[in-house]
């Protein structure tokens, strides 16, 4: 199987500021990390490869600095990494980004499965995975919480809904976006980390992937951010637990577990 995992470098902090002119995040001066949801996508790709064979390729679009998250992906077990980086890509919205990633996936060729995290923590749009599927004309399943099975040429997944879950069976090639419930990502070993630091990572430009430059960057991005505002503050609601100390402790543990705090 050939699996592509799409990953993104995002600001490490939630104190990012928005440029009042462009309404975009000011990324200069911020520490960057691998988008946490993408860690689960990488782990799932590596697990599928470990079970069924093949290779996992991580791709990312961003400035040269984004090579750091590709090294992280290599240390987490992917076989190859590719960076899409060029000034022509700068300013791409989710549609233009998914177009560029789709073109890169076409160039890689013979890809069976694309895995993305459910969303990036900076934009929170959850649009790039579905956008890639749309550009490629492939089937997709979003919010995947479990890969149930992989048979010859098809994948069966469990996807979360607000009121339960769906079981979807799709023929390859396909795109899935995954939730953090899907696995527990491994911690990179020192050996892999050191190897990743030495790895050669190719940088592809628009011409390398045959991208139409009218469809990337600011010009290729239909999104216009008119206004940004913080969401209304959540109202804290206190819940009183009553009963014997044992009952209270049990109820407290149950409540904390329901909120995935413990």
């Amino acid at each position: 199987m050939k699996i592509v995992v799409c990953i993104k470098q995002v600001p490490a902090t939630n104190e990012a500021k928005i440029d009042p002119e462009t309404k975009r995040i000011i990324r200069e001066g911020l520490n960057s990390i691998l988008n946490p949801f993408d860690t689960y996508a990488i782990e799932e790709g590596v697990r599928i490869r470990e079970k069924f064979g093949g290779e996992v390729i991580a791709i990312s679009m961003g400035p040269e600095k984004a090579i750091e998250v590709l090294r992280e992906a290599l240390s987490l077990g992917v076989d190859k990494a590719i960076l899409l980086s060029d000034k022509e890509f700068a300013g791409s919205d989710t549609w233009a980004t998914s177009y560029a990633l789709a073109k890169a996936i076409e160039k890689i060729g013979d890809v069976d499965l694309v895995i993305c995290g459910k969303q990036a923590i900076d934009g929170d749009t959850a649009q790039v995975g579905p956008g890639i599927a749309a550009h490629l004309g492939w089937v997709q399943a979003t919010y995947v919480m479990k890969v149930e099975d992989i048979q010859d040429g098809s994948i069966k997944v469990r996807r979360m809904r607000e009121d339960g879950y769906d079981i979807c069976e799709m023929n390859f090639p396909a795109v899935i976006t995954v939730l953090k419930d899907i696995n527990t990502p491994r911690i990179p070993s020192l050996k892999r980390r050191l190897a990743a630091r030495q790895a050669q990572i190719p940088v592809w430009k628009p011409a390398d992937i045959g991208a139409d430059t009218d469809k990337i960057g600011l010009d290729g991005s239909p999104t216009r951010v008119v206004k940004t505002a913080p969401p209304p503050a959540k109202k804290n609601v206190a819940k009183r637990i009553e009963g014997t100390p044992k009952e209270c402790a049990e109820a407290l543990v149950r409540e904390l577990r329901m909120r995935s705090i413990i």
Binding site: I187, S189, L190, K191, R193, L194
Partner: peptide
């Protein structure tokens, strides 16, 4: 804090 394991440090 995510750190390397003592055993892999010794080995590597």
């Amino acid at each position: 804090h995510l750190s390397f394991q003592g055993t892999e440090m010794i080995e590597e």
